[in-house]
């Protein structure tokens, strides 16, 4: 059963468990690859996570001169292969979401690989497995479709893709209802 990362942005309470969990994933060498942002830092405490959305047509891989960024058969856009990455940083400029991180000392880019050692076997990625508020979930397409119905958001405000993202992504994102002035039907 193919599962996806599904993000319900408004649930985020800014605990940054996902960042801490990310550091503990095999192959991540104790450095996190995701972000949590304050939406309006001077006014309120609302936060939102920002993960690699694993584009169907990834700009990072398209702009890589070394073919170091590979797309896994599950659709995950993998981190740079350590022996291939030549350190040009094209990917960091190309990514529309600013996700890839670059280590100048190691001359190496690293980015979210959706914990490929886990997700290739159907185990949720580290971030989703620790998220205490169900901001990050690991769901099948069917379950995601049910959410869509349940939230009664069939009004163009459901953002799994355009115009809120730059293209089709493998990670599905749900637009926050509260910030849009809409009440979700739980």
């Amino acid at each position: 059963m193919k599962k996806r990362l599904y993000i319900e942005l408004e649930n985020c309470i800014g605990c940054r468990s996902c960042l801490a969990a990310c550091t503990q994933c095999g192959g991540h060498e104790e450095r996190n690859r995701n972000y949590v942002y304050d939406v309006n830092p001077l006014v309120n405490r609302q936060t939102m996570p920002l993960m690699c959305l694993h584009c169907v047509n990834p700009a990072c891989a398209r702009s890589c001169p070394a073919q170091a960024i590979q797309v896994h058969e599950t659709g995950a856009v993998l981190s740079a292969l350590v022996e291939k990455c030549i350190g040009c940083q094209n990917c960091t400029i190309a990514c529309p979401y600013g996700i890839p991180k670059f280590d100048t000392e190691q001359n190496l880019m690293y980015k979210c690989d959706l914990c490929i050692d886990r997700t290739k076997d159907g185990i949720p990625p580290m971030c989703a497995s620790v998220c205490p508020t169900n901001t990050l979930q690991w769901l099948t397409d069917e379950e995601i479709a049910n959410r869509k119905k349940q939230f009664n958001m069939d009004n163009g405000k459901w953002i799994s893709s355009m115009p809120y993202l730059e293209g089709e992504t493998n990670v599905k994102v749900n637009l926050p209802g509260i910030l849009q002035g809409i009440t979700k039907l739980f």
Partner: peptide, 17 residues
């Protein structure tokens, strides 16, 4: 990069972070 990430948050929230 930070501005690009904040810009995305802005697209999600509707607030120009």
């Amino acid at each position: 990069l930070p501005c690009r990430r904040k810009y995305r948050i802005a697209q999600f929230s509707g607030f120009p972070t």
